[in-house]
């Protein structure tokens, strides 16, 4: 395949994924059904994983699917079940006056989009930006070994903390 047709394919894939992700994200913050919100979150997270693969980050893409879609979504569904959030249409999912939230969202979008366009207007990603799992693991287990150990202790502390907070007396 020539470089040109590869670029066209990458762009088509990108815009399809981007449209699906924005749609799912908008439905995630507007739907009144809590379980549907969790399913739309699956759509967004899957789209992010696809973007990672598109950028050639294979290990992060696979990790995204395993950790987020495999574990975090299940945790959310258990949270919905255990807090017996009423499933179906209900009035109590949103604040009554959302004008401030809309304005804040638009302001954040305006500032960040203007900044990235002004700062990286003509920056181009190479056609081949693949990185292998071996390179990632080499980096983690040499240069970033101390943050890696710190994060594993943090995960253990969060696990114990969650059990202590949530158990019955």
């Amino acid at each position: 395949m020539s470089v040109f047709s590869l670029l066209v394919a990458q762009n088509v894939v990108f815009w399809v994924i981007a449209a699906l992700m924005v749609f799912a994200a908008l439905r995630l913050v507007t739907t009144r059904n809590v379980v549907h919100a969790a399913l739309y979150l699956v759509g967004v997270l899957g789209g992010v994983a696809a973007l990672f693969l598109l950028m050639g980050a294979e290990f992060v893409g696979i990790t995204q699917i395993l950790i987020y879609i495999g574990a975090v979504i299940i945790l959310f569904l258990f949270g919905i079940m255990l807090t017996r959030t009423r499933i179906g249409d209900e009035e109590k999912t949103d604040h009554r006056n959302r004008l401030g939230a809309i304005l804040a969202g638009l302001a954040v979008a305006g500032v960040t989009i203007y900044t990235v366009i002004a700062g990286f207007g003509d920056a181009e990603l190479g056609a081949d930006t693949r990185t292998t799992t071996a390179e990632v693991s080499d980096s983690i287990f040499s240069q970033y070994i101390i943050p890696f150990e710190a994060v594993s202790v943090l995960l253990l502390a969060a696990l114990i903390g969650a059990i202590v907070v949530a158990r019955r007396e």
Binding site: A18, V22, A25, V29, L54, I102, G105, T112, V116, L125
Partner: peptide, 23 residues
Amino acid sequence: MWLNQFLVLSAVLFSIGVYGVLA
């Protein structure tokens, strides 16, 4: 692919998240 494609998409998702947290 332009770098901006990813940055702008990420900014849009971030803003939708901010709206969700507030609303």
